[in-house]
Structures are given as C-alpha cells and as structure tokens.
Simulated scan of single mutants.
Amino acid sequence: MEHFLKIDRTEILKRFKPMDKFTHKGIQGHALIIGGSYGKAGSVCLASKACLKSGAGLVTAYIPKCSYAIVQTAVPEVMVITDDYMEHIVSIHFSILPQAIGIGIGMGQHPDTQHAFFNFIKMNKIRLVIDADGLNILSQNKEWLGLLPEKTILTPHLKELERLIGAWDSPEDRMEKVKLFSAQFNVIVVIKGAHTQIVDKTMVYENTTGNQSLATAGSGDVLTGIITGLSAQDYSPIDAAILGVYLHGLAADIALPETGYHSFIASDCIAFLGKAFLSLEYI
C-alpha cells in the first residue's frame, strides 16, 4: 500500500469545497485564536486575519489585555476576548462555542501560561491546531500529549519538532520518529520547511507549493490561522492541514513576481490568499 502522496492541484481539487452561494457567517464556522503576550501581539493579528481570509465566518482572538487595542485596530473584523492579566495569558475561559481553536502563537512560556494551557487542554474537546509556544510547552510536559483531542494538528518547524521527538540521525530517521509520534498520540504533524510534509500515522503527504520567501517572521502564524479557519469550516483535520499548507505556499508563489524573495513578508501571504483560492475556483 502506498504511504506517500505528493500534494498537487489535482489532489487539492479532490478536497476543496467551494463556498455555497446561500451560506452566511453563522454557518461558515467560528474559529478561536488563543495567544499573544507583551511584544508579540502581531502574531495573533497575523493568525486571526489569515483565519478570516481562509473563509471562516467568525473569528475571535483570546489575548492578554496588553494586546487588546492592537488586535482591535489591526484586524477590525476580529472579535476579542481578553485574559484577566495584562502581559500574558494566565487563564483560558470563554463562553463562545467555536468549531476550531488555534493556540500557541506568541503566547510565551511563563509558568502561569503553562498552567493555563494545561487546564485548557485537560478540558477541551474542540478541534485543535497547536503552534509555536504551545508546542514548546508540550515539549517540556510530554505527559500532556495524551490529553489532546484525536487528530490535533501540530505545526512545528524543525527545531520545535526536535524538542518534541528528540534528535535524529538522518531525514529517514526523522520521518520514522514522526510517524511513531503521530501514531502514539493520534495527532497530525505538519513539518514546516522546504517541501512541508504532513504526517498522519504512517501516511506522509508532501506539499508542492511555496518558495524561500516564506522564510520570514510570522509565516508560521499565518499558516496556523489558515489551517484553523479551514478546520472551523468543517474540513476534516487532515484535509484542513493539506489544503492549508498548499494555499499558504501557493499564495507565496503567486506573490513572487510582485514582491521578489527578499521583500516578501508574512502579511503578503495573507494579501495573496484570495488569488490562491481563485486559482482553485475558476481556472
């Protein structure tokens, strides 16, 4: 049985669902983005905006109080819930019922934040995407991995991955370790990098879009937002990961003639996301 698949346009069109002409924001999915800390409000702005631009009908950001004015000003379409504390998250409580949650971007690793993260994952049953400091906290508390909902999507770059699974001797060794990790905890692992790979137990999907311009601050935050937004729209976790990675890379490819490699920034990925979607719908 084949356990490897290259993700190209043909494979994406098998998974992509055009938006129904009679839909409305109430049925397009509500996504929650949890993160931010003093000096890192931008990560939540990027993730939240990307989440909206992926088609989610509603997006709420859960942030510390210091980020309130920044997020409300930078992304007026996003709703905000603030933590009780000013500079970092110390508890995670909300009354909304989102369809998907993205957590960890810009969150920091303060002991209070780690405690809040533990209490959150202990109770949470909602679809989850974990990135950045969420991954770093898990790597310090690996016994918490068993608390994650099945098919939680983890989006590490190579350094974050090493903290989670340990060092490897070769790319082949790394992949075997990721497969074992995915199977043990029933999670989907998005290994970010040149030719991003998505691992679901023994199955490996390799992306075919993207270029070196994505090696820029905030690029991962944008990806987290896109995948969370697609998850909220009721894509299966694996399809949300595959489609999110493909669109993220495709937006960077479409932007390239205008931005070049050096001048591309994460906000450009969001700006060109519409053209990436259009290429699936009308060409």
Rank of each mutant, 00 (worst) to 15 (best):
219 S>E: 08
231 S>T: 09
2 E>Y: 11
272 F>L: 09
68 Y>G: 02
10 T>W: 08
198 I>P: 05
8 D>M: 03
34 I>K: 10
142 K>C: 10
266 A>T: 08
231 S>A: 13
249 G>L: 12
233 Q>L: 00
172 E>H: 04
94 F>Y: 09
206 E>V: 10
39 G>I: 01
270 I>T: 05
216 T>E: 02
204 V>Q: 12
86 M>V: 14
178 V>R: 11
53 K>H: 10
242 I>G: 02
282 Y>V: 08
93 H>C: 12
99 Q>K: 14
157 H>E: 10
208 T>H: 04
228 T>L: 01
17 K>Y: 04
254 I>L: 05
186 N>H: 13
53 K>M: 13
192 K>R: 13
133 D>W: 01
51 C>G: 04
174 R>A: 14
24 H>N: 05
214 L>E: 03
63 I>R: 11
83 D>G: 09
5 L>S: 11
117 F>R: 04
260 G>I: 00
137 I>M: 10
259 T>V: 04
9 R>N: 08
229 G>L: 13
154 L>S: 10
33 I>P: 15
254 I>S: 08
163 R>T: 12
51 C>V: 02
76 P>W: 11
149 P>W: 02
177 K>G: 14
75 V>Q: 11
222 V>E: 00
97 L>I: 05
14 K>A: 11
150 E>Q: 12
119 N>H: 06
75 V>L: 10
40 K>R: 15
200 D>A: 14
35 G>K: 03
277 F>T: 04
139 S>I: 11
278 L>W: 13
171 P>I: 00
163 R>P: 10
257 P>G: 03
167 A>P: 12
269 C>K: 02
281 E>K: 10
190 V>E: 06
18 P>C: 11
161 L>Q: 09
227 I>N: 05
3 H>E: 13
115 H>S: 15
162 E>N: 15
40 K>D: 13
134 G>I: 01
166 G>N: 04
220 G>P: 07
124 N>R: 11
249 G>R: 11
248 H>S: 01
152 T>L: 06
105 I>M: 14
53 K>E: 06
253 D>G: 12
37 S>G: 01
46 L>F: 05
209 T>E: 06
48 S>L: 01
157 H>P: 15
259 T>L: 07
110 H>A: 03
122 K>R: 09
7 I>R: 09
134 G>N: 00
83 D>E: 09
207 N>R: 04
86 M>R: 15
245 V>K: 04
33 I>Y: 08
172 E>G: 12
92 I>L: 06
185 F>D: 11
71 V>P: 00
21 K>L: 14
40 K>V: 12
104 G>E: 14
21 K>E: 02
253 D>N: 13
195 H>T: 09
46 L>W: 01
75 V>D: 01
215 A>T: 02
246 Y>A: 08
217 A>C: 02
194 A>G: 11
44 V>M: 01
212 Q>P: 15
204 V>L: 07
180 L>I: 13
236 S>K: 12
260 G>M: 06
177 K>Q: 13
176 E>W: 03
178 V>G: 11
136 N>K: 04
43 S>F: 05
282 Y>D: 09
73 T>M: 06
228 T>Q: 00
98 P>E: 05
106 G>T: 07
149 P>E: 00
67 S>W: 01
261 Y>N: 07
241 A>R: 04
89 I>E: 00
40 K>H: 12
74 A>Q: 15
218 G>H: 10
163 R>I: 07
170 S>C: 11
92 I>Y: 10
123 M>Y: 15
39 G>S: 11
